[in-house]
């Protein structure tokens, strides 16, 4: 059960009160065998998931891919060929100035650790924490560990 270690305990508590953590009435999703555990500390995940190395060129493609990151749906990104960026989230131009690699990783992986009420999906959230997931996606994360690292690698280039 305790595969998932909330370092920011009080924040996790706030999430509990808000109901953004599954209640007892939810059926447990089938356990994902290859889910890589991660730990957040100091508002960041310092180490790459599974010690993988990200490829920024691949990351650049994933952030505009509707079936993958689709970051462009909500964020302004320095990807000029992708038209009509969304305005739901903050612009990510120059984001690497403001956030370290580890801070970016935590935000991509599971932003609800920081902001329990955020609209932003947790792209590598523990699948056990998703509620009422469509069968096709049950027990799965939105992105693979490699895809997370590719995106983080691209984000760190946004100086």
């Amino acid at each position: 059960m305790n595969r998932y270690i909330p370092v920011l305990t009080s924040l996790a508590l706030a999430a509990l009160f808000s109901g953004s953590v599954p209640g007892a009435d939810q059926k447990a999703a089938p356990e994902s065998v290859d889910y890589i555990k991660w730990q957040a500390a100091g508002y960041a995940i310092a180490k790459p998931l599974g010690s993988l190395t990200g490829d920024p060129a691949v990351g650049r493609k994933l952030v505009v891919d509707r079936k993958k990151g689709n970051c462009i749906a909500c964020h302004l990104l320095p990807v000029p060929e992708a038209e009509f960026p969304g305005t739901v989230g903050p612009p990510l131009v120059g984001i690497a100035h403001r956030l370290s690699e580890g801070e970016l990783r935590l935000r991509v992986v599971d932003i609800k650790q920081l902001f329990p009420h955020s609209i932003m999906p947790g792209y590598y959230r523990n699948p056990e924490n998703y509620i009422n997931v469509k069968k096709k996606f049950r027990g799965k994360t939105i992105l693979s560990p490699q895809e997370v690292e590719d995106i983080v690698a691209w984000l760190t280039t946004l100086q």
Partner: peptide, 22 residues
């Protein structure tokens, strides 16, 4: 909140009314 994207109706239709999704 619901589904793998973990959003509630209220996220889009209350918190972010007027913002653009793409």
């Amino acid at each position: 909140p619901t589904g793998q994207l973990d959003m509630a109706c209220a996220h889009c239709h209350e918190q972010y009314v007027g913002a653009r999704l793409r």
